[in-house]
Computed example of a mutant assay.
Amino acid sequence: MANVRWLVDPTHSEVQFKVKHLMITTVTGYFKTFNVEVETEKEDDFTSASSIIFTANVDSIDTNNEQRDTHLKSADFFDAENHGEIRFVGNRYEKTGDDSAKLHGDLTIRGTTKPVTVNVEFGGIVVDPYGQTKAGFTVEGKINRKEFGLTWSAVTEAGSVVVSDEIKLHAEIQLVKQG
């Protein structure tokens, strides 16, 4: 049997990150342009995935503040001019419960690749009103931005850190089974 290919449904998916600002509030950002492609050996068994690839376009970053977005795209952070894509290649989908799993893989940001494990909640598989088979996932994880070369830092006059090192990742992903 041939592998089953799944592609992201971008209108029913979102990718966001959260970072502490001044250590008192959290700023949320989104990647508006991203892609997810998965190949499974068995139709509805994602533990059989032979390929899981996520990419995000750095230029599509949106934190609801144009000046901040421009700074994030600059060489101080993502360096979009030289590193326009964030890439995660999953190498193991490990079921940990009925609807929970850990996805292990390699995350590349700014040309630096590190192993990362994220938590996955499997929402299930359904056929939508148009006859398309869809699978839903909630993905959550944390990374240290400095491990990926995002080392810009500033401190307030009172000694508070402006941007935390820990970045929380959250994604709602809906995949569509390809014919």
Rank of each mutant, 00 (worst) to 15 (best):
R5F: 07
D9R: 05
Q16D: 13
F17Q: 05
F17I: 00
T25Y: 10
T28G: 05
G29N: 02
Y30C: 02
N35T: 10
N35P: 03
E39K: 14
E41G: 09
E41D: 10
K42R: 13
E43R: 12
E43W: 06
D44V: 06
F46G: 09
F46K: 04
T47K: 08
A49K: 04
I52P: 05
I53R: 07
V58T: 05
D62N: 10
D62S: 00
L72D: 05
K73G: 11
S74V: 01
S74C: 00
F77L: 06
D79Y: 11
D79F: 04
E81L: 12
N82A: 11
G84R: 10
E85D: 04
G90S: 03
R92L: 13
E94C: 08
G97N: 12
S100M: 13
A101Y: 04
K102M: 14
L103F: 00
L103N: 06
I109R: 07
G111M: 01
G111T: 02
P115A: 06
T117G: 09
T117I: 14
V120M: 13
G124W: 05
V127E: 13
P129K: 06
Y130E: 13
F137V: 04
F137M: 08
E140D: 15
G141L: 03
G141K: 03
K142L: 13
K142D: 10
K142I: 11
I143T: 04
K146L: 12
F148T: 04
G149I: 07
L150G: 02
L150H: 08
V155H: 12
T156V: 10
S160P: 02
D165G: 08
D165A: 04
E166I: 13
E166V: 14
K168G: 14
H170L: 13
E172K: 14
I173K: 07
